[in-house]
C-alpha cells in the first residue's frame, strides 16, 4: 500500500496543521490571542540555555510493554529540571484556578457532562502558575509552548479529581504573560 506517495506528502504539507505537533516538530496555526511568550508561530529553534525540549511522545516507553505504560528514562532524568514543551491547552468546561492542562492534541474536558470520561491522552500534563493560585487562565487556541520546571509523579488537580503523570511549574516570564492576560480578560468581563 503506497500510503505516502510524494503527491500525498505534498498535499499534507499544505494543510494548515491544526493537529501538527507533539513530536517536537512545529505548528503554524497560532492565534493572535496567544501572548508572545507562549506563541508558536513558526518552527521553533533550540530552547534557551538551561532548558531542555520535552516531547509528549518521549514521556512513555514505546512500544508499550505487556502491561501498563511506563515512564521513559528521559522523563525521569528531567525531573526537577527546566523544560520546554509544546502542546494544546485543554479547553475545560469548568476551568481550575491556578493551573491548566496541556495535551499533545486539541482536546476539551467536559467536567459537567462527561465527568472524567473524556479520554484525554495519558501524556497530558498539568501546568501550574506558582504565583497565581487564584488565576483563571483564559482559553488559548492553537499550539502553545510552556517553559518551566518539570515534576514527575502523580499530581492531582484539586476539585476535578484529575491526575496527571507530570506537571510543569511555569517560569516567571511565561507566568507573567498569562497573569496579564487573565487580568485583561477579567477587566473586559467587568466592563461588560
Amino acid at each position: 500500500m503506497q500510503r505516502f506517495t510524494l503527491a500525498l506528502a505534498g498535499l499534507l504539507a499544505l494543510i494548515p496543521a491544526p493537529f501538527a505537533h507533539a513530536n517536537g516538530a512545529t505548528g503554524t496555526s497560532a492565534t493572535t490571542h496567544v501572548p508572545a511568550a507562549l506563541a508558536v508561530t513558526r518552527r521553533l529553534g533550540a530552547p534557551p540555555a538551561g532548558v531542555t525540549e520535552l516531547k509528549f511522545a518521549d514521556m512513555f516507553k514505546l512500544p508499550v510493554g505487556p502491561k501498563g505504560l511506563e515512564p521513559t528514562d528521559r522523563l525521569r532524568t528531567l525531573d526537577g529540571k527546566r523544560v520546554r514543551i509544546v502542546g494544546y491547552m485543554v479547553q475545560q468546561e469548568l476551568p481550575v484556578a491556578g493551573s491548566f492542562m496541556l495535551s499533545p492534541l486539541p482536546a476539551s474536558a467536559g467536567d459537567e457532562d462527561e465527568s472524567l470520561a473524556d479520554d484525554l491522552p495519558a501524556s497530558t500534563i498539568i501546568v501550574q502558575l506558582p504565583n497565581g493560585p487564584g488565576t483563571i487562565v483564559p482559553d488559548l487556541h492553537g499550539l502553545i509552548r510552556v517553559t518551566g520546571v518539570l515534576h514527575v509523579g502523580a499530581t492531582e488537580v484539586a476539585r476535578t479529581e484529575r491526575v496527571a503523570a507530570a506537571r510543569v511549574t511555569l517560569d516567571a516570564r511565561t507566568e507573567r504573560a498569562l497573569l496579564r492576560l487573565a487580568r485583561e480578560a477579567a477587566a473586559r468581563k467587568k466592563a461588560r
Binding site: F60, K67, L116, A117, D118, A122, S123, A154, V163, A165
Partner: peptide, 21 residues
C-alpha cells in the same frame, strides 16, 4: 490495569481507565 488512585483523566501513569464510578 490497576488504578490505585481511582482517577482517570488524564490517566494514571500506567494508563489505567478503571474507576469506581
Amino acid at each position: 490495569l490497576p488504578n490505585g488512585g481511582d482517577s482517570t483523566s488524564p490517566q494514571p501513569a500506567n494508563g489505567s481507565q478503571r474507576r469506581s464510578a
